[in-house]
Amino acid sequence: MIVRIMGEGQWKLADSHFVELNKLDDELLEEMEAGDEEGFRRTLCALLDAVRRLGSTLPDDALEPSELILPAPDASLDEVREMLSEDGLIPG
């Protein structure tokens, strides 16, 4: 699956990594619902770091469609809230 982090680029990740990413996404959703800004920031960074660590970077000139788009690391809680589906940032 191709994942884009807004403002950074794209990474290719194996589907097997989505168990770990979904756990972080669930935690992020709970922190957002609780209004926990500090927890939200920490978990968003952990989620984005996991994508960078587990995935392989695509070249900037690659024209692959992104199957998942994640917010930039400095996105506000309100900006991320607008990107959410009922499953969080990551479907499933």
Score class of each variant (00 low, 15 high):
81 R>F: 12
54 L>E: 08
54 L>C: 04
56 S>W: 04
48 L>Q: 02
3 V>A: 05
12 K>H: 12
38 E>Q: 10
76 S>M: 03
89 L>K: 10
84 L>T: 05
22 N>V: 09
1 M>P: 10
29 L>V: 13
27 E>P: 01
46 A>H: 05
33 E>K: 14
81 R>S: 11
9 G>Q: 00
21 L>K: 03
56 S>I: 04
35 G>A: 11
30 E>T: 15
34 A>I: 04
48 L>G: 03
82 E>N: 15
21 L>D: 03
66 S>I: 15
13 L>C: 00
20 E>G: 06
17 H>F: 05
40 F>G: 01
47 L>F: 04
3 V>W: 02
71 P>M: 09
89 L>P: 08
74 D>F: 11
55 G>Y: 01
70 L>Y: 05
51 V>Y: 00
34 A>F: 10
51 V>N: 06
83 M>T: 01
11 W>H: 01
11 W>M: 00
24 L>T: 00
29 L>P: 07
22 N>C: 14
8 E>V: 02
15 D>A: 08
84 L>C: 06
57 T>S: 10
56 S>G: 10
57 T>G: 09
8 E>K: 01
68 L>T: 04
58 L>P: 13
41 R>A: 06
23 K>D: 12
23 K>T: 12
64 E>Q: 14
74 D>C: 08
43 T>L: 08
48 L>A: 02
19 V>A: 03
33 E>R: 15
50 A>I: 02
17 H>G: 07
34 A>V: 05
28 L>W: 02
48 L>T: 04
91 P>N: 04
92 G>C: 04
75 A>D: 08
46 A>M: 07
54 L>R: 14
62 A>Q: 05
79 E>H: 05
29 L>A: 15
3 V>F: 02
77 L>S: 04
87 D>Y: 06
75 A>S: 09
69 I>H: 12
8 E>N: 02
92 G>Y: 15
66 S>Q: 13
79 E>S: 08
72 A>N: 14
53 R>D: 15
47 L>C: 04
10 Q>P: 01
7 G>N: 03
39 G>W: 01
2 I>Y: 05
67 E>W: 05
29 L>I: 09
72 A>V: 13
40 F>E: 06
61 D>V: 14
63 L>S: 15
88 G>P: 00
43 T>N: 07
3 V>Q: 03
77 L>V: 05
58 L>Y: 05
79 E>P: 06
7 G>Y: 08
74 D>W: 13
24 L>S: 03
15 D>I: 09
2 I>V: 10
58 L>T: 03
21 L>N: 01
37 E>R: 15
49 D>G: 14
